[in-house]
């Protein structure tokens, strides 16, 4: 309610102006204004839009996820644990969490460099670089996985160089991290970039004039300003990486206990018709994702608050 008041005030002012321009300008303005204020606070379409929205949200989001959770809950605590906490499932959580955390950290660091350059440095080709950052958002993840595995196999463009050095990018844990960095990089960049653009450069200048070194200025003045955005980017990257399936399935080799991530385990169990284990692992993954979503929402609200 509080949010709508300024708009109502704005509206209450506006009609007089409209009426002034309109044909019935003498005397009509006041009464028209009152009539509009009363009716204007309620726009049409609340019922229709609420019906469509709640139907889609309930049918496509709430109902399926509720069924999933209830199905897992119907196993009882003991049954749930037996299915969700098998050695193979534990290993899959470990691989998923480990690879996602590393990928999110790498993305945040690399993303910070790219975001900084895009926001602060003028150079030929900057717009092209800026456009290329969105490629992972548009490129199907299956294509990314296919290409990455082709690049890092021993005969691939990069594998030729890296495999003799002992760096195996395909069918390995490193491969999982590589594709997860690819899919999460845009999130890490796009959250931080506008915040760097909006930084007040006068403070940096003041710090420099007062004798701070470039590094000190960055650590003491710039970093505190962009840290909330970097953390948000990290959380978003982590969320994206945790759920990723399409690209990983091509490059990881999917070896149980070694390079099998939780989503791959879910699919494997489903294909064996082991519904109980597929469902419980899915619920574990869902819980992690939703917890992250809550964290991301809180962070973004703080970010918006800081921006104001």
């Amino acid at each position: 309610m509080t949010e709508s008041t300024p708009r109502m005030i704005a509206f209450a002012v506006n009609p007089t102006q409209e009426a002034f321009r309109g044909p019935g300008r003498e005397g009509g303005a006041g009464s028209a204004g009152i009539r509009r204020r009363r009716r204007g606070s309620v726009l049409p379409g609340f019922g229709t839009s609420a019906a469509i929205t709640s139907m889609v949200v309930l049918a496509l989001i709430v109902f399926p996820l509720a069924v999933l959770v209830l199905r897992a809950a119907s196993l009882g605590p003991g049954g749930f644990l037996a299915a969700a906490w098998t050695p193979r499932a534990r290993a899959a959580y470990g691989v998923s969490l480990g690879a996602s955390l590393i990928a999110a950290m790498v993305s945040s660091l690399l993303g910070l460099i790219v975001a900084w350059v895009l926001a602060r440095v003028e150079f030929p080709g900057r717009r092209i670089l800026d456009a290329l950052v969105d490629v992972p958002l548009a490129l199907p993840t299956a294509v990314a996985g296919l290409v990455y595995s082709a690049l890092y196999v021993p005969k691939g463009w990069l594998g030729q160089v890296l495999v003799p050095l002992g760096i195996k990018g395909a069918y390995s844990f490193l491969g999982i991290v590589l594709v997860l960095v690819f899919v999460s990089l845009p999130f890490a960049i796009r959250v931080v970039q506008p915040v760097i653009e909006s930084l007040d450069r006068d403070t940096e200048e003041a710090a420099r004039i007062l004798g701070a070194s470039r590094l000190q200025t960055f650590l003491r003045v710039v970093l505190p300003g962009i840290l909330p955005a970097v953390v948000t980017g990290f959380a978003l990257s982590l969320a994206r990486a945790l759920g990723e399936y399409g690209s990983v399935v091509f490059i990881s080799g999917n070896m149980p206990f070694k390079t099998e991530i939780a989503p791959v385990l879910i699919v494997a169990r489903l294909e064996e018709f082991a519904y109980a284990e597929a469902t419980t692992v899915a619920v574990m993954l869902l819980a992690m994702s939703l917890a992250l979503l809550v964290v991301v929402n809180a962070l973004q609200q703080r970010l918006a608050h800081n921006a104001q």
């Binding site: 989001i61 999933l68 969320a239 759920g243 939780a262 989503p263 993954l285 994702s289 979503l293």
Partner: peptide, 20 residues
Amino acid sequence: FFDVPFAVSPVVAGLALVLI
């Protein structure tokens, strides 16, 4: 709720549909 599909793994979503 609008953001939930972004957070949930597509595989989990697919499984939920299979369960229904």
